[in-house]
Simulated scan of single mutants.
Amino acid sequence: MCDVAGSIGSVVSPVLEVGKWLVVPISHQFKYLFNYNTNFKNLEKEVKKLKNTKEEVHDQVDAAERNLGKIKQNVKDWQNDVEKAITKVEQLIQEKADNQRYSKGLCCNFIIHYKHSKKAFKLKRDNVDPLLQQGKELGPVSSRTNPLLEIWLRSSEDYLAFESRNSTMKNVWDALIDENVFMTGVYGMGGIGKTTLVQELGRKAKMDQLFEDIVFAEVSESPDIKKIQTAIADNLGLKFENESERAKALYSRMEGKNILLILDNIWEPLEFDKTIGIPCETDRGRNKLLFTARNLDVLERMGSTNNFGMDILNEEEAWTLFAKMAGNCVIEFSFVCFLNQHILILFFNYLMCFDVNIKISN
């Protein structure tokens, strides 16, 4: 008798164990059906919080962009993930509404309710809740301020493509795209258009994406090294933390890079690496230096061997430039001075030699 009872017990026990394992998942699945309304209420409540957080982050991003901030990639990724999650939730809520409107039979409703409830639960758990938590931990949405693009790089309205300048333009451009050329110079008397020409070359290089960065700094007759360093650093997004190591910081920022540095209006030779912080020799990478100066001797003493001179404009070009600078009043003025046009052109070229800025008011 005991043996029979023991045998029955040995058979029943495993069956009961299997039953326990089956009951748990079955009951768990039934919870989706029983908690249909609760799961949707919880999902809608949390997705509303997520939308509010999304708007807050959007406002922060908008403010940062207005102040030229660079938005962090993890913030952009979070925004994209939030959009996808909200879309999924809204689609599910729409499916629920459609089901209530076009429901067909009790059994069919049970199946659809089960599927929708399960989706609602998992969407909240796997998408909405993690994104809410990430939104709280994003921190500052921008990492730094982007360097401002110089106005001269945006517009070429001041440049006129004169025939007498085309050969110089081509020669300098060829030097810029030649990997074996580091320094290039443009020289000629003051006011002849050297600055305008090299700035136009900078715009062309920017358009062709020839360099990572294009920097312009004026040197002048009495060079201020700190001012030159600041102009370069501002264009490269560099902030000097230690004033006594400005040259070192600038050197490290430019070392081995692909930057076009235009140094305009050089009167005396400059010491690039130690004084200013411009990498030369083996540390220069693909960097290029483009100079303007009045005297060829200055360029050569700095080690520039690819130098191109500029002459004064011919009569027709000088008159065209004068007409552009004079604006509308040149129509009346040109009629009065028609007979003296040659004298006017010679006078205009004479003024250019002395860096005189001509301004004619209407």
Rank of each mutant, 00 (worst) to 15 (best):
E200A: 07
W152K: 11
F121L: 08
M302I: 03
V186N: 05
C2M: 06
D208E: 15
G185Q: 08
L106E: 00
P223E: 03
L16W: 07
F40L: 14
G185K: 07
F333K: 08
L236W: 00
I358Q: 10
N295A: 09
K20L: 13
S164A: 09
F121S: 11
F333S: 04
Q133A: 13
N328C: 01
L261P: 04
E157P: 06
N287F: 00
L43F: 11
E281M: 10
I151D: 15
L270C: 05
F308W: 02
D355S: 15
D129L: 13
K170W: 00
I86Y: 01
I331F: 06
G105N: 00
M325A: 06
W78R: 08
E245G: 01
K248M: 03
L201W: 04
H342G: 14
L176G: 05
K122R: 12
I259M: 02
G303N: 09
T275E: 13
S252K: 15
N287V: 02
H116M: 02
V18F: 15
A64C: 06
F40N: 12
T282A: 13
C107P: 00
L339E: 14
F30T: 14
N307P: 03
G6T: 12
F333R: 04
A5T: 04
M183C: 09
T305M: 07
S361N: 14
I266P: 11
E90Y: 00
D98P: 00
T320A: 10
N295S: 12
L289F: 12
K45G: 07
R301E: 11
N287L: 03
L339P: 08
I259H: 02
L50I: 11
L131I: 11
V356M: 08
M302C: 13
V89M: 01
V15D: 02
N357C: 15
H28A: 12
L131G: 10
K72Y: 04
L236T: 13
S142T: 04
E271F: 01
K288A: 11
K257I: 03
F308S: 01
A205N: 03
K227A: 06
G185M: 05
K88C: 02
E83W: 01
V336D: 01
T38I: 13
M207F: 09
E221M: 07
L263I: 04
F216L: 11
Y102M: 03
Y251F: 14
Q79N: 09
H116S: 01
S142H: 14
Q134M: 12
A63R: 15
V12A: 10
D3E: 12
K45V: 10
N74I: 09
Q199N: 09
W319N: 02
N39H: 10
K31C: 11
Y114N: 13
N314C: 09
N80G: 08
R144D: 13
Q94K: 00
N307F: 02
P147H: 05
P279M: 05
I259T: 13
R101W: 04
N74F: 08
L210R: 10
Q73A: 09
F333D: 00
L22I: 15
A233C: 10
P14C: 12
G19N: 06
L92M: 00
F272S: 01
G6F: 13
D234E: 11
S222K: 14
N80S: 08
D273G: 04
L299D: 04
G6V: 13
S117P: 03
V172H: 01
